[in-house]
């Protein structure tokens, strides 16, 4: 109901309806429905193993759904040809949980790689400017010539985000952006997610089980439980719900 009201006012960039995904006997997603609107940050919150990462892997075309519809920027992701999917992927930035930086390349090469492989006829100066702009956006311009192995976990996450920003995506997908980081670095990453939203006018899905991250980065929260969304709304709306599953998640996070 609430989703329909908002959709009347805002443009939907991602539309998921009746999505199912199983791995053998394990049913991960069991009828997921969700809309993400232009310019908003949506946090998908839930325990480990509830299918959060599977959801964004389907959105980026890394996994195929068993059934259901996934529309991204008006395209049906699972019905696209490889060429069309690649064209769509240029508008989607994916920040991996492990950062997924290319070990054999330094920071500069990590950022140059997606740019030079996708945009032809760029001059050396244009490439340099794009790399510097992306590194400035994440505040790590001084790390340009370092290898990924020389960076801290937080720095790796930031470089991973910078690598996606270099293609100026319309949609950002963050997979557990604060996992394994100390509270101060978590705060910095949360701020960065907000900065990216403002500066690049992106729509984002942030996958997390960290309530602080959800509160600081999310315009809307979608609570995933056992392969289905059980509640969607602002942070306060979601956690005002008396549903035992939501309350136990909230209490466990904050009492810990």
């Amino acid at each position: 109901m609430e989703s329909e009201q908002i959709s009347g006012e805002k443009e939907s960039v991602i539309c998921i309806s009746d999505l199912y995904k199983s791995f053998g006997d394990l049913h991960v997603l069991k009828g997921v429905n969700l809309d993400i609107y232009k310019g908003e940050n949506l946090v998908v919150l839930g325990r480990s193993g509830t299918g959060k990462s599977v959801l964004i892997n389907i959105l980026s075309g890394l996994l195929k759904p068993d059934s259901g519809t996934v529309m991204v920027l008006g395209e049906k992701v699972d019905h696209l040809t490889q060429k069309a999917l690649d064209a769509l992927r240029l508008h989607i930035g994916f920040s991996f949980q492990s950062s997924a930086l290319y070990d054999s390349m330094n920071v500069r090469q990590n950022l140059e790689f997606p740019l030079t492989m996708n945009v032809k006829n760029l001059t050396k100066m244009q490439i340099k400017e794009a790399v510097e702009e992306a590194l400035n956006a994440v505040g790590l311009i001084d790390k340009m010539n370092q290898m990924p192995s020389d960076l801290s976990g937080g720095q790796r996450k930031r470089i991973g985000i910078a690598r996606t920003l270099i293609l100026k995506p319309q949609i950002m997908l963050y997979d557990e952006p604060t996992s394994g980081l100390d509270p101060i670095t978590c705060y910095e990453i949360n701020q960065l997610i907000r900065d990216v939203q403002k500066k690049y006018n992106t729509s984002s899905i942030i996958i997390t089980h960290d309530l602080t991250c959800a509160k600081e980065t999310g315009d809307r929260i979608a609570m995933l439980f056992d392969g289905m969304f059980i509640k969607t709304g602002t942070f306060d709306e979601v956690f005002a719900d008396s549903d035992e599953r939501i309350q136990s998640f909230y209490n466990y996070n904050f009492t810990k």
Binding site: L62, F96, A100, D103, M117, R163
Partner: peptide, 22 residues
């Protein structure tokens, strides 16, 4: 194998780079 388990191959794929070809 190391690139696969550390999601570097997936990172190429979502950047519209054909990892098989590369």
């Amino acid at each position: 194998g190391s690139m696969k388990v550390s999601e570097q191959i997936d990172a190429m794929e979502v950047s519209a780079i054909n990892p098989f070809k590369y």
